[in-house]
Design a binder for these strands. Structure first.
Lengths: 199, 199
DNA sequence: AGCCGATCGAACCGATTGGTACCATCTGAT
DNA sequence: ATCAGATGGTACCAATCGGTTCGATCGGCT
């Protein structure tokens, strides 16, 4: 049965559906933890279709990582934006969102960092670097609006807290990694303000 | 030529030499980035010898990770101890040592985190968790001696900075990741002291 | 109605993988 | 001198991998 009976034949939609389904599978199993055959079975797609859309397994991986990176960044950015205009509240929203992510049973750490550790390939490294840059933009913006003396440095320190909290949450049992990171972020935020704390 | 002419036949020494040589190779290439055949060539050892000592490739990997974890922890602990008794100086020494590591051309991030991302196996996860626990002990000790109100929380926040700085150093170009992390660590340290900053 | 292209399912391929077996050779202890 | 055990080198194995090919079949546009 070559084509499902009720299925809509639309290459763009098929491609999007493959990426959609592959995101959680590759995250859970790892890039090399699942073969193309089993992957296709999980995606309910034939090998030929997969290879026509992505060329190679690596092509699929890169498309999946790009999409996942964009979603994660949009998600965090949205959480910050939804918290209002106060940089302090925005920062709190970011770490609350992260904690929510950590509590998800399927949480396995940052997918892009994991991918970069698995595939020592320039393309994957580039996606990961851009992903961190996206986080950095968000955090530097918050630092800037908070009146930090050096927003770039504070942004980078906050990025370390974000990624560090993710690493710790992935490999230690204590469940309040996001909370502790948020407290630390607040401390850094108030300490680096342009206005003196006693002014 | 089955046995090298001047070589010393000593199983324990052979095993140690294999681990010694495998540590940088597995770090550079990744756990699955090199096959057993090529690995044996790089280690100047035969497959039979390798399998007699470690049973499986996974066995070698675990032995290598254990050893690497212990060395890293000893190295950081030693750097802190060599800095004297002042917790502040000890913390500075830790991040200086990390920065030195980041500057090494072969630096590829934390080997244990990379390994855990590559092999979704309980044994590797356990080694990584224990590795982080070792760091946590060191940092919590510093926090405690520094008079932190809650040494366990501060220790955990410092751990996030350490791992976050390592991640950022591995995936971003800016070379002063350790410096920024150290500044942040100082800020957290002074803010969390039991004595009021204005007292 | 009819054609084109998208899709599935399955067979197939060469390459590589982790792991085993065998033997010649060397060391170290007796 | 002799023997047991450790080692190197090589050939080998079954399994798996990423990737290709082909025919049958269905949807969508004309």
């Amino acid at each position: 049965m070559p084509v499902a009976k009720g299925s809509t034949i639309d290459p763009a939609r098929t491609r999007a559906a493959i990426i959609e389904a592959a995101i959680p599978v590759l995250y859970e199993r790892g890039l090399d933890g699942i073969g193309v055959a089993e992957l296709c079975a999980r995606l309910s797609v034939s090998k030929e279709t997969l290879y026509r859309h992505f060329g190679t397994k690596e092509g699929l991986i890169e498309a999946v990582l790009e999409e996942r990176s964009e979603r994660m960044t949009r998600w965090l950015t949205g959480a910050a934006a939804a918290a209002g205009n106060d940089p302090h509240d925005q920062l709190a929203a970011v770490f609350d969102a992260l904690q929510q992510w950590y509590d998800d049973p399927v949480f396995r750490g940052c997918a892009m960092l994991n991918a970069a550790a698995q595939h020592h390939v320039e393309a994957v490294r580039a996606i990961t670097a851009r992903h961190l840059d996206g986080y950095l933009d968000l955090l530097t913006g918050i630092a800037d609006r908070a009146g930090a003396a050096d927003p770039h440095v504070l942004g980078r320190q906050l990025l370390m807290l974000v990624e560090g909290a993710t690493v710790v949450a992935a490999h230690q049992d204590a469940a309040d990694s996001g909370e502790h990171a948020r407290q630390a972020a607040f401390t850094l935020l108030s300490a680096s303000s342009r206005t003196s704390p006693c002014g």
